[in-house]
Design a protein around this nucleic acid. Structure first.
Lengths: 111, 111
DNA sequence: CGAATACTGAGCCATGCGGCTAAGTATTCG
DNA sequence: CGAATACTTAGCCGCATGGCTCAGTATTCG
């Protein structure tokens, strides 16, 4: 569970940057090399590589080197962590709503 | 759209911290004062207040001061930004899957 | 009124992040 | 083989973040 939280940290941190979100969006249309991806952003390659490493570290993408080219692929399953977290939150709210409704019903019945 | 992206930044940044996610979870069960919330975390009040301000800045929570007590309330609608973003991603993947399927179908027909 | 409570503001500090350049390595092409 | 390509490594820089303390303000309670 602490591990789950650390993974969530990494995913949220990875997505808390416009550049990295753009990479995710781009990779949604299919794999691409680091060079191809980098060309779309106004920064030097080493700077861009840091973003790639951050994304890879979070598990949101996978990369593999073949020859001198590193290809990046989206790991769609990883975003399920966000779904899970959102579902957890909604579960908590629902419990509260249920409790409130029970409370209202009960107190109404008592009058 | 650039504004939408800036808002996403703030939401993701706000959620990229264990403490702040815990606050969100806690507020899911109902409003609470800054002091009550802070008591659950091993840090000084001014440090905790920074987290509260970050959350408020992102729009995820709302706070209001009454007397000497500041009460924090969850703003559930704000998490819809995450749903929207996730839906956007899935839309992109779906397009790609559709294209791939069309490609496979077309090339199969040609043989 | 005076003391306790609940923040609030100012400012310090260490660390990390996102950018850069310069130089190095490993493949591939002619 | 030599040049071009595609990263990769190392290291610097400025700023933001997340923690702290200490002192201040505004309410509330006895």
């Amino acid at each position: 569970m602490a591990q789950y939280s650390a993974q969530l940290d990494e995913v949220f941190i990875a997505l808390a940057d416009q550049t990295r979100r753009s990479v995710i969006r781009r990779l949604g249309r299919g794999p691409a090399s680091v060079g191809d991806l980098a060309r779309e952003f106004p920064m030097a390659l080493p700077s861009f590589m840091k973003h790639v490493r951050t994304l890879e570290g979070s598990g949101l993408i996978h990369t593999a080197k073949s020859g001198r080219v590193r290809t990046c692929t989206l790991n769609r399953e990883r975003l399920a962590l966000l779904d899970d977290w959102l579902a957890e939150q909604r579960g908590i709210w629902q419990e509260r709503t249920d409790r409130l409704e029970r409370f209202v019903t009960d107190t109404t019945e008592d009058q």
